[in-house]
Amino acid sequence: MTMIFGVPLAVFMGQLMLGLINGAFYALLSLGLAVIFGLLKIINFAHGAQYMLGAFAAMLALEYLGINYWAALLLVPLVVGALGVVIERLVLRRIAHLDHLYGLLLTYGLALIFEGTLINIFGVSGSSYPTPEALQGGLNLGFMFLPTYRAWVLVAALVVCGGTWFIIERTRLGAYLRAGTENPALMQAFGVNVPQLITLTYGFGVALAAFAGVLAAPLYPVSPTMGSSLLIVVFAVVVIGGMGSILGAIITGLAMGLIEGLTKVYYPEAANTVIFLVMILVLLLRPSGLFGKEA
């Protein structure tokens, strides 16, 4: 059997693939955080809860409304994104003129409310969401067995990340966003409705989190606390990549997933902490992050 540094190839590749899939979630979530931070300058602590709401909404939609996975993948981000729009309009906008720390505290409070409410109703133990039929089974890659659903998650996450990058870096709407980030007052003087742009951006960032939540539902137990544990890692990813950088969020997310996977192969004890070690190193050597602009 082929060995890589004393580890069978199948194990090595298997962990790498698992890491890449975790990385896809890190990328999707840190991308949403980066998009929101760019224009609103708010660190959206509700992001994990909004991811969890995505998974929950998919599960409830299937259970009570018979809405299948594919429809949920489209509808849930819209619904949760609309909730984000409402949150921005009703709450975040009112504190936009205050120090950004207030936005962080407020979104953290919202996260606690979402989590607490769902724990009250459903308890903390997770439920499972069935893998859609078309994505059951797996592919034999020769050196490993890759479940079809995991391959799909990777592809879907990459397509959505790539699409978001394209919109922001290559389109007119993206130019509005980038310019609005730099000088919102001047954008208004050009006739751009900046408050509306901010609302939609927040809604879009929240929709990305919900999309990740639906993708995650068949993979992980759907529970009210699924987001808060993930969010801490995602914040570390964002710090490593550099706050506000779109491409940085995507690449760092995938890379950190891979590093985590590799650590699982060679030193499993450190697998849960390796990302934080990288974060400490980056903070010491390049405080603005790998892709962040130097202050």
Binding site: Q188, A189, F190, G191, V192, N193, V194
Partner: peptide
Amino acid sequence: MKPHRIPR
């Protein structure tokens, strides 16, 4: 008028 209306 809101600021973004004036340029229009």
